[in-house]
Design a protein around this nucleic acid. Structure first.
Lengths: 225, 225
DNA sequence: AGTATGCCTGAGACTCAGTCTCAAATCAAG
DNA sequence: CTTGATTTGAGACTGAGTCTCAGGCATACT
């Protein structure tokens, strides 16, 4: 009945991933051979590779779960794009920091291992592709091809920054800001993704004293997409 | 007198990188051992690793040049951020496609080799960090931390999309669009990077009938950064 | 010329990640 | 208890990347 996920029972046997992260952090990533790592988490070298694929992937095992949950959420959400993305990223963060001790240990491991930071970029890109497909699907007609591309990249980058912030500051301080940031970001691309044309949209205008009609017209056009 | 860069003399000996890319494309990346690759470009295995560091890096050797030129350009440009970035990315594209034959061959190699696509993500991230630092430097006061992060990621993503487009379509068709796209992208983040604060700034506001004071205040705050 | 100095190359041994094969073990029924 | 399927472990094997050492090959010095 015990799942292999997070801290359910107080002193349940730690998951292999958590044990691996701790071992790698304490002994150094490059210095650790796969044999000793497999020993440390109580399985043979063969089984280690069968289960985790590689020494790098054992560190990022959580992302598989986070990614599949995000996909589910993007597929079924009927909220606005802005809200869907804000909730989706928040859910991802929740999954990745579910076991705070391991999460912080992994963060420290990444900080001291350039090789793993590079691997993280690759993992992260899977989120970007996921958001990109979602945004392309829900984009308003007339949205150019580069819209979803640009926004997906920006969303993931902001999310990563929030995750890094979380390592330093407390929990909610970091993620509360994330939602506001993402909302502000998506708002800049209204009406492609933000509020549907009309509806509950709020646009603010202030005309510089000397603005020419052309300036005004161009600014309005920008605001309307 | 002959440089080792691009197609200067008609039948000058091809650069080691170009030869390597051709060999890998024709024989398959995974199937090629470093020994045979080193043979193909006329050097020993030892020298190969000394010069290129790894089998992966020989494919992306051009990026070193592109990155240093971009850095130079970002450091010295006194144009607006929007123009600087548009010109910078265009220059990068120019460097990367300077030898069109090799560039297309590399593209084909990437298409058939997931491992190299992952490596490309890592290389690409160096551009992102470069743009991010630049944008943070030139950002208007009051720009939030996530501004440069989001925009840098978006710029690089759009640039990559343009490079992929170039592989399919003709030269200028792809890159002409790129400049327009980047300008439109940066415009969405005015006045953080676009127009300097004040000056020729025009902000447009339209209040939805039922907007609450909170809505208005928040929207105004967003517009002002 | 001859010689000394410093750099680049090649050869080969070595480590270790990741793959593959096969045999033992574990488990689920019947 | 037996049968059959899945999981595990042991060990051989491939190939990337590192390291050391010995031999060119140049330039500089006498």
């Amino acid at each position: 009945m015990t799942t292999s996920t997070a801290a359910s029972a107080p002193d349940a046997p730690a998951s292999p991933q958590a044990t691996a992260v701790r071992y790698l952090t304490e002994h150094g990533y490059e210095q650790t051979t796969t044999s000793s790592l497999a020993d440390a988490i109580g399985m043979s070298r063969s089984t280690f590779f069968r289960r985790f694929g590689s020494k790098e992937d054992v560190v990022f095992a959580d992302h598989d779960l986070a990614l599949s949950q995000l996909q589910e959420q993007l597929d079924t959400s009927d909220l606005t794009a802005s809200e869907t993305i804000a909730r989706g990223t928040l859910e991802v963060s929740r999954v990745l920091t579910r076991d705070p001790v391991t999460a912080r240990m992994r963060a420290q491991l990444l900080r001291s291992t350039p090789l793993l930071r590079e691997r993280e970029l690759v993992i992260t890109h899977r989120y970007e592709r996921m958001f990109q497909r979602y945004l392309a699907r829900v984009a308003a007609p007339g949205t150019p091809d580069w819209g979803p591309i640009a926004v997906a990249a920006a969303v993931v980058a902001v999310h990563n920054a929030a995750l890094r912030r979380w390592m330093k500051l407390g929990d909610d301080h970091a993620f509360g800001g994330l939602t506001r940031e993402l909302t502000a970001l998506l708002a800049k691309f209204a009406p492609w993704f933000g509020g549907e044309a009309g509806a509950s949209r709020v646009v603010v205008a202030a005309f510089e004293a000397g603005a020419s009609p052309d300036d005004v017209l161009r600014a309005i056009t920008d605001q309307l997409g």
